[in-house]
Write a protein that binds this DNA or RNA. Structure first.
Lengths: 164, 164
DNA sequence: AGCCTATGAATGAAAG
DNA sequence: CTTTCATTCATAGGCT
């Protein structure tokens, strides 16, 4: 996924790849969504009604205009990125500092779109999840450090998840 | 917002004329402008509300028939409370003093259950996260602004909440 | 169609 | 104040 080429594509030529098209769509969609939500918020706040008497504030109401271009709004790490993150996580850098996060981000951005917040969140989630898994798996004493999948695995295995 | 040719272009074909390309660019540009203006408006009248991307604005506890057995161990501000807090946060008064916190608390408790600790924590978190966002989003500021909304802005995401 | 799970993201509260 | 933890929400993808 190299959206870095999008600018030249748009500015210089007329034939776009699917990737480039996707970038454009995402952009327009993002703008549209932001505008919608800002307008909605503005309306809500301007109305100044303290009554929380049961009317729901809807943010995600699709406009009738039909300019609703769907785009993914949630970051999805690529396989390569996951592998690298996994590796770093395993490597003991349990707590990446801000500086470290920047480094990681810039390194990972060569393999796909990513932001520092993404990285930060990823580590947060990873830590929490790891911990929780241990808590469930080791109520006994025998402390085992057997962690989950190896970094080279991009295929998520289906662990049994019992519902207590 | 002007639309028409651009959508079909985006949705159906991959070869665009200069004209179509221009339409697209205008569209993105228009969105950007609108967003900017809306954000500006928000700045002036209320606090900046940057939670529009994820969760929906929370409302007060449903006034159901008294059954309060199920635990809500964590304080959840109502929409009104959030708005007021956000407003206070924005309107400068930096770090609320102990006294100020008491005032705020008693004022907010008219709109829902709240404690001084909640208020204190809220401000604490708000400040920290605002700061972190700046640290993440801002440091590459040496460059002059690129005011034209060319698709080279691959990060036209929802992170357009600027902090004054 | 539609659930289900994994997971990105938001956030109150606590630790340091 | 700053960083981390714990919990929760929302959504993309995979599954039957």
């Amino acid at each position: 996924m190299a959206e870095g080429a999008a600018e030249e594509g748009v500015l210089c030529v007329k034939v776009m790849t699917d990737e480039q098209m996707e970038v454009l769509r995402s952009q327009i969609s993002a703008y549209a969504t932001v505008c919608e939500q800002l307008v909605e918020m503005h309306r809500t706040m301007t109305a100044q009604q303290d009554s929380f008497s049961g009317r729901v504030i809807r943010l995600a109401d699709p406009p009738s205009g039909g300019a609703k271009i769907s785009a993914k709004q949630r970051w999805t790490p690529t396989a390569v990125q996951v592998r690298m993150l996994e590796s770093m996580f395993y490597h003991g850098n349990g707590t990446p500092s801000k500086q470290r996060i920047k480094e990681i981000t810039s390194e990972l951005s060569q393999h796909g779109q990513i932001s520092e917040t993404n990285v930060y969140d990823w580590f947060q989630n990873r830590r929490a999840r790891s911990k929780r898994k241990q808590a469930f798996a080791a109520p006994s004493n025998t402390e085992s450090e057997a962690e989950e999948e190896s970094p080279s695995e991009k295929k998520a295995k289906k662990e049994m998840h019992l519902q207590p």
